[in-house]
Amino acid sequence: MKPKTLVVIGGTLLTAGCFWGLLFAPAEVFMGDVYRIFYIHVPTAWNGLLLLTAAFICAVMYLMKGDLMWDDRLEASMEAGVVLSALLTVQGSIWARPTWGVWWNWDPRLTTTAILVFAFAGILALRTSLKEPRRRAMVTSVATIVAAADVPLVYFSVRFWNSLHQIQSSPETVSAAFVWPLRVNAIAVLLLMAGLISIRAETVARLREAGSEPPPLPSAQVEGAR
């Protein structure tokens, strides 16, 4: 399937899932409407961790195969993963204030997630300072493999340690009326991200082949034409 088709299907499903979850699904018995953020928070969490796991796999593949294509894919999935995990902490915070009573607390789940965001954002920043593609790919891959140790920690933090954040829900703990809009959104974000990262990986590859320089800004082009 073409990446653009994935983006369109994902976007459509996400819109449908949000309408379903926000307007048609019933309110929760204790939380009322506050619970509705989970229709976006849970898909964000799943896909964020999935994207960063994908970045880890790309890092291992680059080191094993030496094909820079894997580095392009790594950059694309890591960028998307960082955006999703940053959004995740913001959404969680918005839900936490009315539910827990605080915006933030250094509970194991929240702490490991904060580390996740900063570690991977740091790797993206590090990349911009390395101009030679092979050296950049090598350094990024090693840093990614080390940072990826935090991904299972985020997922299992609520089971390893006492935490304020609840453990994972399952269809047994979530009413049937809530399960499907959640699944639709999870699949929607997955398709959307799959499409977006394939497009982005291609762009990254072209930038690399063009000498790692971003395309000139419109104003610079005007100046060059003078």
């Binding site: 019933p26 939380m31 009322g32 827990w100 453990i167 994972q168 809530f178």
Partner: peptide, 24 residues
Amino acid sequence: RLMVSHGNEYRAPDDPASVDLKKL
């Protein structure tokens, strides 16, 4: 500081109309 922890259960009411959001 008092924080309430929420479990992993999300329940829909039997009769959605019975949930009075104002009261909640």
